[in-house]
Simulated scan of single mutants.
Amino acid sequence: MKVVAVLNEKGGCGKTTIATNLARGLQLEGRDVMLVDSDVQGSARDWGAVDTETEKPAVVGMDRPTLHKDIPKVAEGSDVVVIDGAARAEKMQTSAIKASDLVLIPVQPSAYDIWSSETLVELVRARQEVAGKPDAAFIVSRQIVGTNLAGEAQEALESFDLPVLRGRTAQRVIYAEAASQGLSVLDVDPSSKAAGEIRQIVEDILATLDLQTARTNGTTG
């Protein structure tokens, strides 16, 4: 089992959008996926509770700082667990980091968002010194199409000496439309640009977790 935590100190950076779409994207790649909502706001749980004809990943609420102890108990048999992280909750973030193989840090292309990532990066590095993991990577989130801000943000993020995923999300109405229906953009319109963005993120995550194997052979790395 692999655990991916989508974390950032700052609210409104697109954590839940990325977590829900990533979980569904991994499921469509043939993985058994559990989505853990660790935010007391419960947005991912609300998404999971919307009744649809689509078989979505199981969504479990865990809003206590014991994720590293609880996830192995409830997610037995899952291939991948995706944690939708809580903002402004250092104990929860620390627990999520302990539970994870990969911490994905979404940042909007603005100086404020980039600066707010510093504390989280320090928490990740402190855990790496103790346990040798998790890996961590930035993902540019909610970029404004047609601007140079995302490129400038990537240059700034590289100063943290962490990789920046090739996949990124843009501000597109379809993300909100999909969320309101309890679906991913892959379900609402598989041919959309947003669906292409999520597929790239899924590909990046599978490669990072060394799970990039053919779906047809029924094996995982």
Rank of each mutant, 00 (worst) to 15 (best):
K2Y: 06
V4Q: 05
V6H: 00
L7M: 13
L7R: 08
N8R: 06
K10G: 00
G11I: 02
G14R: 05
K15T: 10
I18V: 13
I18M: 04
T20A: 02
T20S: 06
A23W: 02
G25C: 02
G25W: 01
G25A: 02
L28G: 04
R31P: 00
L35K: 01
L35M: 04
L35T: 01
V40S: 13
V40P: 14
V40E: 13
V40T: 14
D46C: 08
D46V: 11
W47L: 08
W47Q: 10
G48T: 13
G48M: 12
A49M: 11
A49F: 02
V50N: 02
D51Q: 13
D51S: 11
T54H: 05
K56W: 07
A58K: 14
A58H: 10
V59D: 10
D63W: 06
R64N: 12
R64S: 14
R64T: 15
T66D: 14
L67H: 11
H68P: 02
K69F: 11
D70Q: 14
I71W: 11
I71H: 12
P72A: 15
P72W: 15
K73I: 15
V74D: 11
E76T: 09
E76F: 03
S78N: 10
S78L: 04
V80M: 03
D84N: 12
A86L: 04
A87S: 15
A89P: 01
A89G: 03
A89H: 13
D101Q: 07
D101F: 06
V103Q: 07
L104P: 01
L104K: 03
I105M: 11
P106N: 05
Q108G: 08
D113N: 13
I114V: 15
I114C: 06
S117R: 09
S117V: 00
L120D: 07
L120C: 11
V121L: 14
V121S: 07
E122D: 15
L123C: 04
V124W: 00
R125N: 10
R125E: 08
A126P: 01
K133F: 03
P134S: 04
P134H: 03
P134M: 03
D135E: 10
A137F: 10
F138Q: 05
I139H: 05
I139Y: 04
V140D: 02
V140R: 10
V140G: 05
S141K: 05
V145A: 14
V145E: 15
V145L: 14
T147L: 04
A153H: 13
A153Q: 13
A153V: 09
A153N: 12
E155Y: 08
A156W: 03
L157G: 07
E158C: 03
L162W: 02
V164M: 05
L165E: 05
R166A: 10
R168E: 08
T169Q: 05
Q171M: 09
I174E: 12
I174S: 12
Y175R: 01
A178C: 11
A179F: 13
Q181G: 02
G182I: 08
G182F: 06
S184T: 08
D187P: 02
P190N: 07
A195N: 09
E197L: 07
I198P: 00
I198T: 03
I198V: 09
L206Y: 00
L211H: 00
T213R: 09
A214N: 11
R215L: 09
R215K: 12
T216W: 13
T216G: 13
N217I: 08
G218I: 05
T219K: 15
T220E: 08
T220L: 15
